[in-house]
Amino acid sequence: MREDVLIRRIVVALDASRHSSDALRAAIDLARQTNAEIVGLFIEDENLLRLAGLPFAREVMSSAVQRKFDAASVERSLRASAAHLARELQRAAEPHHLRWRFVVARGNVDEQLLEAEKDADLLVIGQAGRRSHHVIEPGDTAVRVAAQATKTVLVQHPVLQRNQTLLIVFDGSPRAWRALNTAAKLRPRGRGELVLLTPPQEEIDRTQLDAELQLWCDENQLSARRVQLLDLDVKHLVSLVRRHHACGLVLSGERSDYPESAVRELLRQLSCPVLFVR
């Protein structure tokens, strides 16, 4: 079931946050792996601009102090951010001789991202959100884009896992093979093992699946093993990821397979990147 997965353009969502830096780093690694063009996308949030235009606009900073929020300072701040991010992208891409572009868009962030991913083979976004001591809350944008995107999306997590085991939900379907091939494409050779989580579906011919997998492993010079999933719910997936100390989780499926609530819960509970292959 070998399929050549082509990744020619990677769009990475950039803003001034730390999550965005994590996303950029991950995108650069993937671009080096696939030799794809990297497009840095900075979106000027129109809601912020509108708010800034209102006469009473104030913001409450994280330090619980209020201050005035005006249009001029927002514009200034956005311009500075864009310039800074462009430089960051250039600094990250050029040492590796990667093709790169920096694009600035203005509008609704979710819409702009969903629009941009249409032209991309892979969208990389940071798992933005409030960060507490232990818990990283997924941002609404990350959840919405991951749930609604039509192309493959990687939600990067700021906590780096030491382990190299990668978990892939794999039911033997063409979509699942595509996810497996995408994972193999994005992952450097010789990095830990792949653990394939097979859902408890009766129609799956496990013997044949194992034979095919063995063939695939030999072709790709990868090591993989199959683990039976008892249930496909988020809680069970999360516990497996934790048990394996996995460095990432790969999911495949249509948009309808992952409603926003499930994606939110998944991202909230996992401490590793999640790749939604479509």
Binding site: E46, N47, L48, R50, L51, G53, L54, E59, V60, M61
Partner: peptide, 26 residues
């Protein structure tokens, strides 16, 4: 009203539709 994240914190703004009300509408 809507709760909006700003680069350094949070802000509230009157909504119109899915987004923040435009200043001219306000």
């Amino acid at each position: 009203m809507g709760l909006i994240r700003t680069p350094v914190g949070f802000a509230f703004a009157p909504k119109k539709g899915e987004g923040v009300i435009r200043p001219e509408d306000y």
